[in-house]
Design a protein around this nucleic acid. Structure first.
Length: 279
DNA sequence: TATCCATGATTAG
DNA sequence: TAATCCTGGATAA
């Protein structure tokens, strides 16, 4: 489930349903020794925020009154008071939030009041992580909510002839792109998964952004979403990447060969950077 | 019954 | 690059 569009859906779900809801209990299931032990004492409120594939749960002990618009369109952050703190969540391969009316023994984290439980669950709990603190800044800016930062970073980066499949999965640049989006993006860009890249062009970045938006618009309907997928799990060819993850493609797969990069339009990139007032 | 596989990410060598 | 985290459903045998 959780790539950028799904995390965005979860963020909205939490804020739409629970912005005025008071919680008064919390439980954590210990699944490994290195899992940080969390406690929440007293009554609290929850507000969610997103950066790429990471979700931030702001735990505040006062009702969320002031919603402050952030620098980037579309996203809001709460103003934190002294005792407030944040939990960062990575959903791994199959994590999601479920709203339950009875205790769920599989819940990794459970935010509760007498009416319902907001539970973090997963069929792959070992791939889920969470910690107290803030976003991992080794991961790149959010491609939607920090769009200018994202564009500038990606456009000025020299990827040194790495192939496009590896580049798209690198969370330092494409925080939020995962395995299904990779296949869809490469398919829609009509390039070979092993094409070598030095510089990406603005058109490609805009395609990435619009695909993230498209996927998000279908996240609430499984049938429409599956229909929207054109390549992932459907293409004629499938090959493993260096991390043993599937790359789906309609392109013929030659031996693990790197396809030559085409000449990049440097003028285009510089024009864009000038437009963004970046040297 | 055994094996494979999953929209992820870190760690060791 | 390979191994690891280690669940559970689908598929192969």
């Amino acid at each position: 489930m959780p790539e950028h569009p799904e995390v965005r859906q979860i963020t909205n779900m939490i804020n739409n349903n629970f912005s005025t809801v008071k919680f008064n209990a919390f439980q954590q299931k210990q699944i490994s020794d290195k899992q940080q032990s969390l406690q929440i004492n007293g009554e609290y409120y929850i507000h969610a925020d997103q950066r790429g594939k990471q979700l931030k749960l702001n735990i505040s002990f006062e009702p969320v009154q002031k919603l402050q618009q952030s620098n980037y369109f579309g996203t809001f952050t709460t103003q934190q008071t002294k005792n407030d703190f944040s939990i960062i969540i990575g959903f791994g391969l199959l994590g999601y939030f479920s709203i339950d009316s009875t205790p769920n023994l599989n819940a990794l984290l459970s935010f509760q009041n007498k009416n319902m439980h907001l539970n973090l669950v997963s069929k792959n709990p070992q791939t889920v992580y969470y910690y107290l603190g803030d976003y991992n800044l080794a991961r790149g800016p959010d491609p939607i909510f920090q769009q200018e930062d994202f564009k500038v970073l990606v456009l000025k980066t020299n990827f040194k002839d790495k192939n496009i499949s590896d580049i798209l999965m690198n969370q330092r640049y494409f925080n939020g792109v995962g395995n299904y989006l990779r296949s869809e993006i490469i398919h829609r860009a009509n390039i070979h998964p092993f094409k070598a890249i030095s510089y990406l062009d603005p058109e490609f970045i805009n395609l990435v952004i619009s695909i993230l938006e498209e996927a998000f618009s279908f996240t609430s309907n499984a049938v429409l979403f599956n229909n929207w997928l054109k390549c992932y799990g459907k293409a004629s060819n499938c090959i493993k990447d260096k991390n043993n993850r599937s790359i789906w493609t309609f392109r013929p797969i030659r031996e693990k060969q790197t396809i030559q990069s085409s000449s990049n339009d440097i003028k285009d990139i510089q024009k864009f950077l000038t437009m963004m007032s970046i040297k």
